[in-house]
């Protein structure tokens, strides 16, 4: 009941944008993920109720779109672009560096729940390559030194 109680206004605003409630599924799932940290089973149920579709129809969306997480992720979700423009400028080495520093492989979360690491496709910031996003902040023109500095500030 999280959305309708805590985020009633935001839900209202989203629903008003579309002639068909189903269109609100993705924006509502974003709201769930922003509030709970990931897409919770309760969240899925609630989105289905609000938009008047079946659970499966919401689940189908959650599994199709890569930005939705069905399990909790670390407090800092590090997404490193390893597509071509970034890889030409050393993204693969940066991923290895991060794996070494954090002691996890891409796709994993540290035991203390602080960091999750993943590689992602082009982030539309190729002019600033190599880049990564931590939670919602973009870090441009990365080097291993810069990464160490950024990690130091994540506590």
């Amino acid at each position: 009941m999280m959305l309708r109680e805590q985020k009633a206004k935001a839900v209202e605003k989203i629903l008003k944008r579309y002639p068909d409630r189903r269109s609100a599924i993705i924006p509502l799932l974003w709201l769930v993920q922003r509030t709970a940290g990931y897409v919770t089973p309760d969240g899925i149920t609630e989105v289905a109720e609000i938009t008047g579709v079946t659970l499966t129809q919401v689940q189908e969306i959650v599994s199709f779109y890569t930005m939705f997480h069905q399990k909790p992720v670390g407090r800092y979700l590090i997404s490193v672009c390893d597509n071509i423009s970034c890889s030409l400028l050393g993204a693969e080495q940066l991923v290895e560096h991060l794996e070494g520093r954090l002691g996890i492989r891409a796709g994993e979360t540290t035991a203390n729940g602080l960091f999750s690491l993943q590689t992602v496709e082009c982030l539309g910031a190729c002019n600033m390559a190599p880049v990564m996003i931590i939670n919602e902040t973009l870090y441009p023109n990365l080097t291993t030194e810069k990464i160490d500095q950024i990690l130091k500030n994540c506590t």
Binding site: I84, S85, E121, C122, G124, A125, C126
Partner: peptide, 10 residues
């Protein structure tokens, strides 16, 4: 905007 190499709309 998702075509790798493209960052003009941003």
């Amino acid at each position: 905007e998702g075509e790798p190499g493209t960052c003009k709309d941003r």
